[in-house]
């Protein structure tokens, strides 16, 4: 079973998207802040990380930077899932090594799940 780490501080989103991902046959681990997310990424070795950018304790950009620096986590694909869409945000995340950048407001749950599938199964 493929394992997904979902770093997101909104528990409502963790519930909806997390549940739909589980239904699709994935194991989902939740992290409510950046620090915990970083820790779990190293410990649990997920196959994919879903990452919000506005996070308490450690921002999503910082998490992304650290993930890509660490030997054990640098090859895990990261899908940024956020509502942040300022000038330069997308470019910055992609430069830091994100695989995909999704603006939550522009996607339905089903579309997000499809993107996860593509990232995991190619």
């Amino acid at each position: 079973m493929k394992r997904i780490l979902f770093i997101e501080d909104e528990s409502a989103l963790q519930k909806t998207l997390g549940e739909v991902l589980r239904e699709n046959g994935y194991e989902v681990i939740n992290a409510l802040n950046g620090e915990l997310g970083m820790k779990l990424a190293k410990m649990k070795k997920p196959n994919l990380i879903l990452l919000d950018l506005i996070l308490p304790k450690l921002s999503g950009f910082e998490v992304l930077k650290q993930l890509k620096k660490d030997e054990t986590t640098k090859d895990i694909p990261v899908i940024v899932l956020t509502n942040l869409e300022g000038v330069g945000d997308v470019e910055k995340a992609m430069e830091l090594g994100a695989t995909t950048y999704l603006v939550k407001a522009n996607y339905s749950l089903k579309e997000v799940v499809d993107k996860v599938k593509t990232a995991l199964e190619g």
């Binding site: 989103l13 739909v20 509502n83 749950l109």
Partner: peptide, 14 residues
Amino acid sequence: LRSPLSNMRWALEV
């Protein structure tokens, strides 16, 4: 406004 809105939309979708 976007965050609560996407929460609502996704919950509705479920």
